[in-house]
Every structure is written in structure tokens, then in C-alpha cells.
Amino acid sequence: MSSTGPRKALQIIGIVLAVYALLVATHKGEFWPFSIYPMFSQAGNPWTRAVVREVPPETTAESIDWSAVPFENVAGEPYPLAPKNINQNDVANYVSKTDDWTPGRVQGLRSLFTKNRTLTAPLLVYRVRGVLADDTVSVSATPVMLFAPDTTHLNPSPAARTPGSTVAESSAAK
């Protein structure tokens, strides 16, 4: 093999590296398949996830306690997402990254459960928040949305619907 091969290869690596750096620098560290791989870089911060519970058919928006509860006390029965081919991270991202529940956002989350399938029982979507407290993890859950087969109800408290306001509430509680 001639020595020009490795030299040319190295030049190409340099060009790709420059493009890589430019794209991740201008796209918040991510331009697939380029990445600065920031996963797990924010250690110790409170996290927000989601769980979905199947509640009895007679459940209405009025009969639900919309306040935050310890995670062990969430209402209803488990509604496992994996057998329905619904990605857990997609649900969690809707719940944790939506600051304003516009009709489009509400419909986007609902469609995860209703696009090409029908609901047989109401589903209650909880936002779950974990914080580090005295060397243990304290986990609480707040109902965000009730999906009845034919309608959707948001938590009546605008402050309780969004993760940002939950942080403020927690701070105020302290």
C-alpha cells in the first residue's frame, strides 16, 4: 500500500471532525449520528418521568384526586406500555417537556394511546418526580391528564400540569 492512502484517510478524518464539531456546536450537542454524548452528565438533579394507570370505567374528571401523592399511592392498575408498543420515553418526554398544554400537545400525547387503536378503559397519566433527600430518593406523582375513550381532561390546576411549576411548588413548600 502506498503511503498516500493513510495520509488521505487522515485528511478525510480531519474534514469529518470539522463537520462534526460544527454541527454539534450549532445544534445543542446533537446532530445524529454526531453527538457529544451528554447522557448522564447532569448527575444528582431531580428527574421527571411518567407512568400510566388504567382506572375504572366509571372514573370521571370530578371523581379524581388531582393532587400529588407518594409514588406508592398512585390510583388504578398498571398499564404496561411495552406490550402496546408504546415507548416509555416518548410518554415521559411529553409529560416532562411540555410547558403549555396546547390542543396540539394534548392530541399528540393522546395519539400515542389512540392512533390505530381504541381505548377500552380510561387512562390516568401521572408525572413522576424524583429528588435526592438524605441519601434516599423521594418519589411523588401528580396526575396530569385523564384519557377517557371519547374525551380528554387536563389537571384543573394549571400550575400542577407542568414540570416547571412543580419545581416552583416544591421550592415554595420548603
Binding site: P38, Q42, F71, Q88, G130, L132
Partner: peptide, 26 residues
């Protein structure tokens, strides 16, 4: 993102708690 104390084991406690919620949800 975190600093030299990133390997603090309590951070792993937090991630295990997060995975517990995710696994229950899935």
C-alpha cells in the same frame, strides 16, 4: 455537567430510582 463529584454513588441511587419508575411503566 456535574464536576469531579460525578461518581458520587448517590447519583446512581437517583438513576436506579428513575429506572424503577420507567420499568414499572413499561
Amino acid at each position: 455537567g456535574t464536576g469531579l463529584y460525578w461518581p458520587d454513588g448517590r447519583h446512581l441511587l437517583m438513576w436506579i430510582g428513575e429506572r424503577k419508575v420507567d420499568t414499572l411503566s413499561k
